[in-house]
Design a binder for these strands. Structure first.
Length: 428
RNA sequence: GCGGGUGUAGCCAAGUGGUUAAGGCAUCGGAUUGUGGUUCCGACACUCGCGGGUUCGAGUCCCGUCAUCCGCCCCA
């Protein structure tokens, strides 16, 4: 076949499933609006250095998953592998925090990672996320988590688990890192090969290895929570207290270590049991040093991102959504009739009634068959005879009841017609 | 990047080296040239993801490649 297909790891979102996307986007948009969050849109590509510095050179995302290329001006460009770095860059560039005010931001759009695709993992995928920049209180962490759980709940997604942890501040973490390396080094030979590599590069990630042997070794490792400073511990406890007050169930997972370098203090993840290996549906945390790291003033911040495709997978399992159907199907035959029918159709549409117009001019049998398949409640029919008399037939498909009215009268009583449609909708 | 499974029409598929590649759904045409959801008839894969090889003969076996799925890694 000489035809061209969508690239590996990319997908077309077809009409049959786009309803789920719209549902998700609508709910997210309304939830953000209620919480006084404003949308921000940043470029899809940025200087490579932004991500290298922001996400961390040692991370897998930067090390092996970025779509990086050189443009015609010899600049190194990268398709965004996540939103936070770009949003923070915009925050700094436009001095959004200059008044010392809090910025509550949300975003939605595609991101790109060069990975091997599997269920719930694509090379171009979509995220919806929130960033609260300029406030370091535990209440900020909780606000952001509450918005995430609110959205998921409105989507009707049950059996999701919220895990939280604290990775402390940078000092806590470097102390802990040292302790962990000291503990693990004697076992080095017994660790799985991935974990051996991570021992120097990113030892905290060894904690969540899936290798059984590694897990038994890690059982007795020192705990990150024991290395938290007084202020870090208090912060974490306050977060937990407020989550309890909001009756948002959570589990403390001391092994939860997120893969991006910028996290401090609170880290959290929301997972589903119904997605196989790619279980995380929402991930986020606090990142108090990132703004400064990217050249801004020291500014605390917290945020999360949701994976849209993974949520859609869950929604599809949960619901059978009927596709959008028109209320009215218009059938016509003959040039004059078709012209009159088109005028009627546009009038109805301008009155906010959903109308599908049959363009085929085929015999009435065919057109009625399509009318039936369309799911419309009512058929408007204009043939040669009706065109001659400037009338039309109104046929209710469920009852087969058909009446003839003049086109002028039909347009004058369009509100009555709409009410009849509502009645039929109501009977469902 | 590593390990394993799969790939026949728009969709679901039968096919286990031998004449013209079952069947179902959907679609289109007709029976019924102005009225639907039923029924009946007909059409719909010069070819089995793509390329090469073995063989008298390949959808079927082998190699490569692409895509997809599962797991690892990682993340949303």
């Amino acid at each position: 076949m000489g035809s061209i297909n969508a690239l590996r790891g990319t997908k077309d979102i077809l009409p049959a499933e786009v309803g789920y996307w719209q549902q998700l986007e609508t709910i997210a948009y309304q939830t953000f609006a209620r919480a006084a969050y404003q949308e921000i849109r940043t470029p899809i590509f940025e200087q490579t250095e932004l991500f290298a510095r922001g996400i961390g050179e040692a991370t897998d995302v930067v090390g092996k998953e970025m779509y990086t290329f050189t443009d015609r001006g010899d600049r190194s460009i990268t398709l965004r592998p996540e939103f936070t770095a770009g949003v923070v860059r915009a925050f700094i560039q436009h001095s959004l925090g200059s008044q010392g005010s809090v910025q509550r931001l949300w975003y939605a759009g595609p991101v790109f990672r060069y990975e091997r695709p599997q269920a719930g993992r694509q090379r171009q995928f979509h995220q919806i996320g929130a960033e609260l920049i300029g406030n370091g209180s535990p209440a900020a962490d909780v606000e952001v988590i509450a918005i995430a759980t609110d959205i998921l709940q409105q989507l009707g997604l049950k059996s999701l688990k919220l895990d939280i942890n604290s990775v402390g501040n940078q000092e806590d973490r470097s102390n802990y890192r040292e302790a962990l390396i000291n503990y693990l080094t004697p076992y080095k030979a017994e660790l799985d090969s991935d974990s051996q590599d991570r021992l120097t590069r990113n030892p905290l990630r060894i904690l969540d290895s899936k290798n059984e042997n590694t897990q038994t070794i890690v059982q007795n490792a020192p705990q990150l929570l024991d290395y938290l400073s007084e202020t870090s511990r208090i912060h974490f406890e306050q977060v937990q207290g407020m989550l309890n007050a909001l009756e948002i169930p959570f589990t403390i997972n001391p092994r939860l270590v997120r893969g991006l370098d910028y996290y401090t203090h609170t880290a959290f993840e929301i997972q589903s049991d119904d997605l196989g290996a790619q279980a995380t549906v929402c991930g986020g945390g606090r990142y108090d040093t990132l703004v400064e790291q990217l050249g801004g003033k020291p500014t605390p911040a917290v945020g999360w991102a949701m994976g849209v495709e993974r949520l859609i997978l869950l929604l599809e399992k949960l619901q059978t959504r009927s596709p959008e159907t028109p209320a009215v199907y218009v059938v016509s035959r003959g040039d004059q009739a078709t012209s009159q029918a088109m005028v009627l159709t546009q009038k109805l549409r301008s009155q906010n009634i959903a109308v599908e117009f049959d363009l085929t001019g085929a015999n009435f049998k065919k057109q009625f068959k399509r009318a039936d398949n369309s799911g419309a409640q009512v058929c408007l029919v204009i043939g040669d005879a009706e065109a001659e008399a400037t009338t039309l037939n109104v046929k209710w498909l469920a009852t087969q009841a058909q009446t003839t009215v003049t086109q002028a009268e039909f347009l004058n009583t369009i509100e009555t017609f709409r009410a009849q449609l509502q009645d039929h909708l109501g009977q469902g």
